[in-house]
Design a binder for these strands. Structure first.
Lengths: 244, 244
DNA sequence: ACCTGAACACCGTTCAAGT
DNA sequence: ACCTGAACACCGTTCAAGT
C-alpha cells in the first residue's frame, strides 16, 4: 500500500518469480508449471517475466537450485566416510522426493547453480577423505547424483500415476509385469514381487550402498585421453617451440 | 494407386504411425515430435491418430519400444558373466545414444513393452548365472538400466546443446564449472578437467564396471517387508479361517 | 529500464458430423 | 469403424507501444 493509500503492486523481481514458480511446481507438478500461470499469480502478463529471466529453461534451473538449498551438505565430522556420504546423498534424495515434480525437473535440468555446486563440492571432499583419486571421484560424484536423481524421478512418476488414477489402480509397470507370461519371461515372473517392491527411500539407500562398494572396489578412471578436444586444448596448449 | 488409377492413401495403422513418429523423433528430437506433425506427415489431421493410439504418452511408449528392438540381448554364451552383462548394457547404451531424443524419451517413459521386457529378462538371467539372489537381481536390473538411461540422456543433452549453439560454445555445465572460485569450491576447481571429461560410451563403460563391482560386493536387499501393500495383499491372501 | 497487450506460431485433446 | 474439420483450452516467445 502506498503512502497515498492506493494498493501498490509489489514490484517484480527474480526472487519473487522463482518463489512463485517453485510453489507452482509443488502444487501442479512439472507439466503444470507454466510461465503464463506464474505471471497470472503475480498479476501480470507473461511477457513481463522476460525482463528478469532469459526463458523458461533458465527459470527452471533457478527453481531447481532454490529447492536444492534444503540439501544438507555438512554431516557431522565424527561419522566415517560411508556414513557421511550416505547422509549427504540421503538428504539430496529426500529433498527431491519431498516435492512432486522436483525430481522430474532435476532429471531434465543440470544443477549447476550455487546449491548444486555446493553438493558436488561436499561429495568430492568426502570421497577425497576416502582416498579416492581426483579423476575417479569426479566421475563418481556424477554417478551418485545422477542415480539419486533418477531413482527420485522414477518414484515420483509412480506417485503421480497413483495420485491421478486413484488408489487401487496398479501402476503401468506393475500391470505390465503382472501380464507377462512365464513361458517367454520365466525370470521376470519369478522375480515379479521383487521388481515392484520397495520405497524410494529404501531402494535409494540400497543403491547408495551398491555404488559406494563399487566405487571403492573399481579401478581408477581410464587415462584422460578420453577428454573432449575443447577441454584438452585449454589445458595442453601447444608449446611455442612446437615440441608440445 | 487403386485399380481405377486414382491415388489411394495407404490406410493408417498403428505401425505406420509409430514408424513416422520414430522418424520424427530422430530428426527433431523429443521436443520436436508432436502429434500434429506426425499427422501432417501422414497427410491427415491430428484427430485421426486417436483411432489407433490412446494419447501422446502411449505413442511415446510404443516409439521407445520400437527403438529398443535394436538392443542385442543374446551375448555369446562363451563369455563370462561380466562380459555378457557389459555386452547387453553396452548395446542398450549405444542404441539410446544413436538417436538424439531417444535417451530423453527413455528418461520420461518407463519401458515395459516387449523389447523392454526382453532386456530385463536377459539381465535377470545373467545375474542369476552370477549367483546373485532373485531379490537383489531385481533391484540391480533396475539400477543398471536406470543408470544406462540416465547417462545416455545426459550425453544427448550435451550434444543437443552443442549442436544448437555451434562448436565453440561450452556446454552450460562446463561454463559454470569454469566460473567457480577456488576459494569457495577448491575441490571442484581441482577436479575441473575430470568433471567434464569423457564420452558417453567411456563413462558408461566405467559406470557399468562400478555397478557390477558394487552389486557383487553388496549385501542382499533388505527383507521384503518394504513391499507396498497393494503388492503384498495379492501374495498373502488372508486365510479363510481368519488365522492368516 | 521496466512493464504490457496483443499477436504469432505452436501444442494435445475432444466432439459433432461425415462416410 | 474409421476418419475428419473445427473448436477448445492451453503453451513459450516476440514485439511495438507505453511509462
Amino acid at each position: 500500500v502506498s503512502r497515498r493509500g492506493g494498493v501498490v503492486k509489489e514490484p517484480l523481481s527474480r526472487d519473487r518469480i522463482v518463489a512463485v514458480a517453485l510453489a507452482s511446481l509443488e502444487q501442479d507438478g512439472l507439466a503444470g508449471m507454466s510461465l503464463r500461470k506464474i505471471a497470472q499469480a503475480l498479476e501480470t502478463g507473461p511477457a513481463s517475466l522476460y525482463a528478469y529471466v532469459e526463458n523458461l529453461e533458465e527459470l527452471q534451473a533457478l527453481v531447481l537450485d532454490k529447492a536444492l538449498a534444503e540439501v544438507k551438505t555438512k554431516p557431522s565430522r565424527e561419522q566415517d566416510v560411508r556414513a557421511r556420504l550416505t547422509a549427504v546423498l540421503g538428504s539430496h534424495l529426500s529433498v527431491l522426493l519431498s516435492k512432486p515434480g522436483l525430481a522430474q525437473l532435476a532429471m531434465t535440468t543440470i544443477a549447476v547453480g550455487p546449491n548444486g555446486l555446493r553438493i558436488v563440492e561436499a561429495l568430492l571432499g568426502i570421497l577425497e577423505d576416502a582416498g579416492v583419486d581426483a579423476a575417479t571421484a569426479a566421475w563418481a560424484v556424477d554417478l551418485l547424483t545422477l542415480y539419486t536423481t533418477a531413482i527420485a524421478a522414477e518414484q515420483s512418476h509412480r506417485q503421480a500415476q497413483e495420485h491421478a488414477d486413484g488408489a487401487d489402480t496398479l501402476a503401468p509397470v506393475a500391470r505390465a509385469i503382472a501380464a507377462v507370461s512365464a513361458d517367454t519371461h520365466p525370470r521376470i515372473v519369478a522375480a515379479r514381487d521383487h521388481l515392484v517392491s520397495g520405497t524410494g527411500q529404501g531402494r535409494g539407500a540400497w543403491a547408495i550402498e551398491v555404488l559406494l562398494s563399487g566405487i571403492l572396489h573399481t579401478p581408477r578412471v581410464p587415462e584422460p585421453a578420453t577428454a573432449p578436444a575443447s577441454t584438452r586444448s585449454k589445458r595442453l596448449k601447444p608449446r611455442p617451440d612446437g615440441r608440445g
